[in-house]
């Protein structure tokens, strides 16, 4: 329920002018925070006060503020998306923090996610993984009727569990190895599970893993940190599925480049 009492926090937040300049944690005292504010509204307040003092506001990524765009990306008190489970930081509300608490806010940390400014990082590595194989190679038009291929509810639901990924990168941020495998496995598994994606399953898995490694993400050591912080609760069993699909693709020799053929009439 809404309460009228106001809270005070000691905010330690990462400030870094740009990619080239080293950064540091800076402390700000912030009072007059309502428990009904979202975490990002608390940061808005901080920024408005910095503005009033003529200090440059803290840059942080955010957009939809309803937990679906995947833009917000803050490590709060050592946990990506903060202490509330299965939500993004934009949907976390201040009522779950203690009045007077120190809150440490840092950007995602990973070699593959370089800091651009303050708490903003560059996650384009994820885009490049999808570009390598995270799709079904089908052009617009000429597709069969949507009900032509029945898909069992169980498979459709499982694919949807994987598809719920918002691409925020919390899995990478939480992993001690900066592994992107939860993201990659969710994206690959969604398509690999569905009949529409089966045709290029082997190729997809090999390409995506190759791109993932190229971006410099680490290996999965099954610590489950990714699953613990995933705002959509995507389970690590998809990682096992990816490993399986990868092993099969390798066993089948799918990694060998096919011989070039002369085609066309």
């Amino acid at each position: 329920m809404s309460t009228s009492n106001s809270m005070t926090f000691n905010i330690r937040i990462w400030r870094q002018k740009n990619a080239k300049t080293p950064g540091k944690l800076v402390e700000y005292k912030l009072d007059g925070i309502s428990p009904d504010m979202s975490f990002l509204e608390m940061l808005d307040q901080l920024n408005e006060r910095l503005y009033a003092k003529g200090e440059e506001p803290v840059a942080f990524d955010h957009d939809c503020r309803e937990g679906i765009c995947g833009m917000c990306s803050l490590n709060v008190n050592g946990i990506p998306h903060g202490p509330d489970s299965q939500v993004t930081i934009c949907q976390t509300h201040m009522r779950i923090f203690k009045d007077g608490q120190t809150i440490t806010i840092e950007p995602w940390r990973s070699t593959a996610f370089p800091v651009i400014k303050d708490c903003v990082v560059d996650r384009s590595a994820f885009d490049r993984i999808i570009q390598a194989g995270g799709f079904v190679s089908v052009n617009t038009g000429g597709t069969p009727d949507a009900n032509a291929l029945p898909i069992s509810k169980e498979i459709a639901d499982l694919a949807m569990d994987a598809a719920a990924c918002i691409g925020c990168g919390a899995c990478v941020a939480a992993c001690k190895n900066s592994s992107a495998l939860l993201f990659v496995s969710a994206k690959a598994s969604q398509l690999n599970l569905l009949p529409q994606g089966k045709a290029e399953k082997d190729r997809r898995v090999l390409k995506m893993v190759e791109a993932m490694d190229k971006e410099g993400f680490g290996a999965c050591t099954n610590t489950n940190s990714c699953e613990a912080v995933c705002p959509k609760g995507i389970p690590v069993t998809f990682i096992a599925q990816l490993n399986r699909d990868y092993a099969w693709a390798m066993l089948k020799g799918a990694a060998a480049e096919p011989k070039a053929t002369v085609g066309g009439a």
Binding site: T143, A146, Q190
Partner: peptide
């Protein structure tokens, strides 16, 4: 039809 072919899990 198009979305199903792309692997949208309706």
């Amino acid at each position: 039809d198009q979305c199903v072919a792309q692997g949208v899990p309706f």
